[in-house]
Design a protein around this nucleic acid. Sequence first.
DNA 1: TAGTGGTCTAGACCACATC
DNA 2: ATGTGGTCTAGACCACTAA
Lengths: 275, 275
Amino acid sequence: MPDSASASASASASANASANATANATANPGGAATPSFSPLYQQIKALLVQGLQAGEWLPGQSIPSEIELAARFKVSQGTVRKAIDEMATENMLVRRQGKGTFVATHAEQSTQYRFLRLQPDDGNAAPLQRRLLECRRMRAPAEVARLLALKAGEAAVQVRRLLLAADGGTLRPVVLDDLWLPGTPFKGLTAERMEAWRGPLYRLFEAEFSVHMIRAEEKLRAVAAPAEEAELLQVPVGSPLLSVERLSFTYGDRPVELRRGLYDTAAHHYRNELS
Amino acid sequence: MPDSASASASASASANASANATANATANPGGAATPSFSPLYQQIKALLVQGLQAGEWLPGQSIPSEIELAARFKVSQGTVRKAIDEMATENMLVRRQGKGTFVATHAEQSTQYRFLRLQPDDGNAAPLQRRLLECRRMRAPAEVARLLALKAGEAAVQVRRLLLAADGGTLRPVVLDDLWLPGTPFKGLTAERMEAWRGPLYRLFEAEFSVHMIRAEEKLRAVAAPAEEAELLQVPVGSPLLSVERLSFTYGDRPVELRRGLYDTAAHHYRNELS
DNA sequence: TAGTGGTCTAGACCACATC
DNA sequence: ATGTGGTCTAGACCACTAA
């Protein structure tokens, strides 16, 4: 981003471009130097991400127009455009022709359950019912602390819940989720708060705790249902279940949720696209 | 862009652009018309895909430079660039600064097993051994024919194989794959041909049958190991296995492979990235 | 040194949404 | 009519590769 000298307002990024290019050219011959170079549009992108992280623009709101951002950062509209393009393909921003560019949110219908890849074998899109089983604050177990980058013994919130599908009048459990959330950002999270909430969990996190999930990694395996989980899912002990361990990240690639789901794939499957 | 008069060779894409724009503007007021409009770079992209499909440039080879393509299609370099950009993000092309743009291939180390999301729980990247169990031509079963868009009773090739991991000196089966391939493009595919082949299967398909997989859809579920499959995978009958049904597509979004894999996830997991 | 892709700019015009 | 993103162009210069 802007060169270190330009401490004034909005930091003439154009000057930086040349500065960076030079730095890059001169740094490499010195040995196995740091990469230490990024194109202008990457610097702009970083600034925009900072803005998002700082809450300058909230999910659902629009960011300034390309022209305005170009003026603010003292670059051409095309450069801003390229920065926004990347952020749009990463689902951090959503462009809407004629209206503006908006901060992505888990509120809209289209992106509501974009991290849930489970779907019914028949195309029925009947949304799943939720049933909260547990929600308590505790010290994060070692493994959880490690994955969430918490200090040993730091506070965490543990949540357990069921997702149920309407199956011809009766509700059949399909997913058993265990969540761990870092205690600090999720200070006021209680069972009541969750029970009262209508809508996706990630929307609650956005709206009430300013935590926006933008990316996740999942590890899948087939496991045999343990006794307790089998009972909750109403399947025989030892039934094959799909285990999905998810680590979700927010803006700075900071992990903010660990989730272990057990999916009953008798009438559902996990859909994935490869390219 | 080029004037609309340039109707000469190579399908002056520019002429289309204006034509399309006009069509679009006039079509909409008429009612719920077809979309029937695509920007110039999409038209260029379509032409490039046609070239790939026709085998004008083969996997691993370079396509003409942006400047040359711009001249050929009578558009600006930037328009060609945008077309190539999209194809690169879809993994159809690979850009290499200073060298050129190349047709993607399953030959290179980096993209060798890009459709195989299974990996060992420890980071060991020891490649899997193969063992071919079966390879025969047959009439495609109804379900297979449907998914591969074959006519009922058309010829297909069925392949069954094991993938095994080196586990401290001994080989342990990890994956049991069942493949169905359309008989026509895979005319000469025999067990001997596959046995003799060193390298990824998809590389063989590219090199010997001109079938290049560029995209796939997978459906995952947890299942209990049936007797026959359990024995092949050397696990107890009823063990939980990850079932992965994959449908792979080549250039025109034509399905060209149906694969059903059973993964033993005792020491491996299926990795996925969500965004 | 020449050729390739990569970045950046400036300006024109189109498509869409809103007032 | 105005403002937004979307497309297209033309040209300059940088970074990388290979001869």
